[in-house]
């Protein structure tokens, strides 16, 4: 594929928790970067309503998202090292499945699930960095989506306030912006380490 491969990415292992609007797109970007290995997890199947923002195709409706993602990513790079788990993540499963990951991408939809994953990684997986997303619903306001380094092991993407709800849909462009922020933050932390940027408070 690409003639240029980042040395630091070649042996990296990245976990992706959830293969919806964030995870399916983060996985595409990381595959194109030729990341060493991706560990993909989701419990759900592709539905027609997912196609407005998630990286799946009409003929994949009804298929498991893990199988569909493995298929799509292999079409980008047949040599990509991919591992899929059809599972609903719990703290115990996060610790087991993502044990060898340097970085975990939090790509869940529900706020309480985001909380569960970030708390688990920060409290139980002391060598792992988590890149999480909060606030990406709606359209426009591209520049309000930011990447903040909260601490050595937590990077937070989003505008921090735009939750999804009645009248506030999730859209391909804004979810895509957040997903590519997330993938870019993962590349940066793997290549340069967390010292590349200074911690920032959330305000």
């Amino acid at each position: 594929m690409t003639p240029y491969t980042f040395y630091e990415l070649k042996n990296a292992v990245v976990g992706i928790a959830g293969l919806g609007g964030l995870g399916s797109n983060v996985a595409v970007a990381l595959t194109r970067l030729r990341i060493g290995k991706l560990i993909l997890t989701d419990f759900d199947v592709v539905e027609e309503s997912n196609l407005n923002r998630q990286n799946y195709f009409h003929n994949q409706i009804g298929q498991h998202k893990v199988d569909s993602s493995l298929e799509n990513l292999s079409r980008i790079d047949p040599e990509a090292d991919l591992e899929g788990h059809k599972v609903r993540l719990t703290p115990e499963k996060i610790m087991r499945i993502f044990k060898n990951c340097q970085v975990i991408a939090e790509c869940f939809d529900r706020a309480d699930q985001k909380q569960m994953l970030v708390e688990t990684v920060l409290s139980k997986m002391k060598k792992t960095v988590v890149v999480s997303v909060s606030g990406l619903a709606g359209y426009g306001r591209s520049n309000e989506i930011r990447t903040r380094r909260i601490s050595d092991r937590l990077i937070l993407v989003g505008d921090m306030v735009s939750g999804t709800g009645p009248g506030v849909p999730l859209t391909a462009p804004r979810v895509g912006i957040a997903a590519y922020h997330q993938a870019n933050a993962i590349a940066e932390v793997l290549i340069l380490g967390t010292r590349a940027s200074r911690p920032q408070a959330i305000r």
Binding site: G21, A137, M160
Partner: peptide
């Protein structure tokens, strides 16, 4: 305090 809102 890192607050999460839904969407992904």
């Amino acid at each position: 305090l890192i607050r999460f809102v839904g969407g992904g």
